[in-house]
């Protein structure tokens, strides 16, 4: 399978994503610059974490106007799987590919630590076969406080579009398990069609034994399985 990893000025998890796909999964991954209009026929598009355009104005607000984003939107429109991780999630919300917005953490500090998330909701290319699992994945963000108006939140919940939720290690929800104040403990959501997923945790940072945690690999494996079934686009 071919994974296109989008690189904006200030992206810093693009190489990590490429490494996981190539070295851990043994599949094809390549970076696509923000200022080109050619995704080069990928099966999956990853919008990685980092600080695109220095996080100026709002996280993702400037990246969303990059030329490549029209191609990402078109790919998503054709049903292609698009995964936004951390800053990538922020970019996808700014681009309108996912609803809501990510505000500053309630604690007003950058948080970098392992967190547990429950996989739930409907099946997506990233979460297929993992519903009900609790994964330990690191987060690293200053703006991960998911918000949306009540109507949008109700729709997300009603349609099973909350696909990752911060929980305690035993899978239970609690105020302490929510690191950033996100509405409904939301750590990740998907679009209406289910092919665009955004999440704050970083699965690419915990996908190989050397790093002491392979929970993130399960999400990448799910992408591979989804691709094997769905065929290329």
């Amino acid at each position: 399978m071919r994974f296109a990893v989008i690189s904006f000025p200030g992206s810093n998890c693009d190489d990590d994503c490429v490494r996981v796909v190539r070295e851990v999964l043994g599949h094809d991954a390549y970076k696509v610059r923000h200022d080109v209009h050619d995704l080069d026929r990928p099966d999956v598009v990853l919008v990685p974490g980092g600080f695109s355009f220095g996080d100026y104005l709002r996280c993702g607000a400037i990246a969303r106007f990059s030329p490549v984003m029209t191609d990402v939107a078109a790919f998503a429109g054709r049903g292609g799987p698009v995964v936004g991780i951390c800053n990538g999630f922020q970019i996808l919300t700014e681009a309108g590919l996912l609803p809501g917005a990510l505000r500053r953490n309630v604690c007003l500090s950058f948080i970098c630590e392992d967190r547990h998330v429950a996989v739930e909701g409907r099946s997506t290319p990233l979460t297929r076969g993992l519903s009900g699992e609790v994964l330990r994945i690191p987060i690293a963000h200053n703006e991960g406080n998911y918000c949306a108006d009540e109507e949008t939140l109700a729709r997300l919940e009603g349609d099973g579009r909350v696909v990752f939720r911060y929980v305690a290690p035993d899978g239970r929800r609690s105020p302490e398990a929510n690191p950033n104040g996100a509405a409904n403990d939301i750590a990740g959501i998907c679009n209406e069609r289910g092919n665009v997923v955004g999440l704050m945790p970083h699965p690419e940072r915990c996908a190989e034994p050397l790093l002491g945690n392979t929970d993130g690999r399960r999400l990448f494996d799910a992408l591979l399985a989804a691709g094997a079934d769905g065929g290329s686009r």
């Binding site: 104005l57 709002r58 400037i62 700014e94 809501g100 917005a101 505000r103 918000c147 108006d149």
Partner: peptide, 8 residues
Amino acid sequence: KLLANPVM
């Protein structure tokens, strides 16, 4: 278009 995010 850019300076404000209407969501929030």
